[in-house]
């Protein structure tokens, strides 16, 4: 058995410490050690996007990041999107647009879409499609997901201080 490593990282705004084996992926650490099971595994090789999280503001597929690499990093997962009881505009839009069926891809899409809107508040349809192309959804055909991202973008633009809430 490999010796475990001590990792400190900020996860959804809280400093967390945990022990992990060097071979454990960040995805495993989030799910199995920290019990943040909102982040899903669909392929474990970087090709489905269900494990997408933000690492220091950058989108990563957490199955391709080793746990120890998260040392000192700031991680945002789907569990970190809502502000207390208030849903993020993307979460609300996904519900209103019926942008999920089974919902297993949803956490990855929400985190990826948040990263897009953080950078580009008014993306075109084509830009949204390009940005989300690393996230596979087998249920929806993407139509309602794209519309939900458009709705959230419009809502954020309309809300005073919308950008600050992101």
């Amino acid at each position: 058995m490999q010796k475990k490593m001590h990792v400190t990282a900020t996860i959804n705004g809280e400093v967390q410490e945990f022990l992990c084996e060097p071979r454990q992926s960040l995805l495993e650490c989030l799910r199995d050690i920290l019990h943040l099971t909102g982040t899903k595994e669909g392929c474990n090789d970087g090709n489905c996007g269900s494990c997408t999280v933000l690492m220091d503001g950058r989108l990563v597929t957490s199955c391709l990041v080793l746990g120890p690499e998260a040392s000192g990093a700031e991680i945002v997962t789907v569990e970190g999107l809502a502000r207390g009881r208030e849903l993020h505009p993307l979460q609300k839009a996904f519900l209103e647009q019926a942008a999920l069926q089974c919902g297993v891809c949803t956490p990855g899409f929400l985190v990826a879409a948040k990263a897009l809107l953080d950078r580009e508040p008014q993306p075109s349809e084509q830009r949204i499609r390009w940005w989300l192309a690393n996230n596979l959804c087998r249920c929806t055909g993407y139509d309602k997901i794209v519309r939900a991202v458009q709705q959230a973008a419009a809502e954020l633009a309309a809300t005073q201080g919308g950008m600050n809430r992101l």
Binding site: R31, T37, T77, L110
Partner: peptide, 17 residues
Amino acid sequence: DGVDKVTGRALYGADIQ
């Protein structure tokens, strides 16, 4: 079941501990 599925709270089979 929408809120549970957009907040990551919904428990899928692999989430069992």
